[in-house]
Computed example of a mutant assay.
Amino acid sequence: MTVLAVIPARGGSKGVSGKNLAPVGGVPLVARAIRAAQSSGLVDAVAVSTDDHRIAAVAASEGAVVIRRPAELSGDQASSESALLHAWEAFEDSSGEAVEVLVMLQCTSPFITPGEVADCVEAVLTGADSAFTAAPTHGFVWRRDAEGDAVGVNHDKAHRPRRQDREPEFLETGAVYAMTASGFWTHRHRFFGRTVLIETDPARVLEIDEPGDLDRARLLAPLLDGPGEVPGRGDIDAVVLDFDGTQTDDSAQVGSDGNEQVRVHRGDGLGIAALRRAGIPVLILSTEVNPVVGARARKLSVPVIHGVDDKGAALRDWCSTEQIDPARVLYAGNDVNDLGCFEVVGWPVAVASAHPVVRDAARLVTTVPGGHGAVREIASWILGKELA
């Protein structure tokens, strides 16, 4: 039984420009949806329906089938069902496979889990005609009547039971839908026959329709995504660290003589020492010219390159000199001058206090801010129990 997941992803968006390519947790929204489907264990193929060459390129790089959506199905008035039907037919024509279960994922729901996809598919495989994700709610819903007065929709305002005495209602999340292909062909909509709801965590429910939604998603990503696939000892040949804002809290005390003092975290020093004991080279790379950078490097017994304008070029030269594959280098930073280094290495990491643009570009984000043990956290990813 072939299970096809379709992700509708138009290039145009009135609310958020380039929405489907917007990164959350360092990953474009369309790629997040593709990965959730691929990791579910029950989806045989993932197709992205798009009219945009940039989205198509990302989809192809993630291993999805690209379905070129025609102009008549790409406008604001085109329905998701029309895109789903077109993608299904195009997939069958090109692959020769008969699809029996259709899944639709909306990449504007950034926190879809593989388990939610699997549960929706499983419901259809075991007898449901259609299934969708929904979040439980005990909220009291109101509307305005013709006079503009508040009227209770799901409750009598004069006799409201306690929360614990009410059965939950469910809010459709808009994230995942699954259905039999034959039923969809007949009914041409998502809900038909025996419909099952798949309960999801309300904390993960967020649809990106406007810029504020995207901002909230990016703030939530480190909490809801977790640390992600953290690198182990076998993944890393070197660790390169920014200084200000990464090993410090990005503040400084300036004396009357003009000398600066910064605050560092002892745990970071322990983490760096553990990396060195494990035979992993550590480099401090900074644009800062203040002697405090060199003093900290001497304290930690690690080499330092500082006072450079182009950190990306300096890092590339260092990797070449040391004969280290940049793809096996972890670089940790916090500000926009670190983005050049992010483009060089295979493991770009932002500390939790990093600039939003930097967090978005990172492969991983620490759970603690710079200057508060972020470097030790990174060392614990790589070394695990060896750090102790």
Rank of each mutant, 00 (worst) to 15 (best):
V3A: 13
A5P: 07
I7E: 00
A9T: 13
A9M: 13
N20S: 11
N20T: 12
L21K: 05
A22P: 03
P23C: 02
G25A: 10
G26E: 05
L29T: 08
V30T: 06
I34V: 15
A37H: 12
L42Q: 07
L42S: 08
A47P: 04
S49Q: 07
H53K: 04
R54N: 12
A57E: 14
V58H: 08
E62G: 03
P70G: 13
S82K: 14
S82V: 14
A83C: 10
A83M: 14
A83Q: 15
E92H: 07
S94C: 14
S95P: 05
G96E: 11
A98L: 12
E100C: 15
V103A: 15
L105S: 11
Q106V: 13
C107S: 15
F111G: 12
E116I: 14
D119C: 11
V124P: 01
L125Y: 03
T126I: 06
G127W: 03
S130L: 09
S130Y: 13
S130R: 14
A134G: 13
P136I: 08
T137Y: 05
V141R: 04
W142F: 10
W142D: 06
A150E: 09
P161Q: 01
P168C: 09
P168Y: 02
E169C: 02
F170Q: 10
V176F: 09
Y177K: 14
M179Y: 03
T180H: 12
F184D: 09
R188N: 11
R190I: 11
G193K: 10
G193D: 10
G193T: 09
I198A: 02
D201S: 15
R204I: 09
E207M: 11
E207S: 13
I208Q: 04
D209A: 06
D213T: 06
R216E: 11
R218C: 10
R218P: 00
D225H: 05
P231R: 02
D237M: 00
D237K: 01
V240M: 01
F243L: 04
G255S: 06
S256R: 03
D257L: 07
G258D: 03
N259S: 14
N259H: 07
N259R: 13
V262R: 00
H265F: 05
L270S: 01
I272D: 01
A273S: 03
L275Q: 00
R276E: 04
R277M: 00
A278S: 03
G279T: 05
P281H: 03
V282M: 02
S286H: 05
V289N: 07
P291S: 04
V302R: 05
V302G: 10
P303Q: 04
V304L: 11
V304A: 15
R316W: 00
W318I: 00
C319W: 00
S320Q: 11
R328Y: 10
V329K: 00
D338Y: 09
G340H: 07
G340K: 02
F342P: 04
V345I: 06
V345G: 07
V351N: 10
A352R: 15
H355Y: 08
D360P: 03
A362F: 12
V365Q: 13
T366F: 13
G373R: 09
G373I: 01
E377V: 06
A379T: 10
G384L: 01
E386S: 03
A388V: 05
A388N: 01
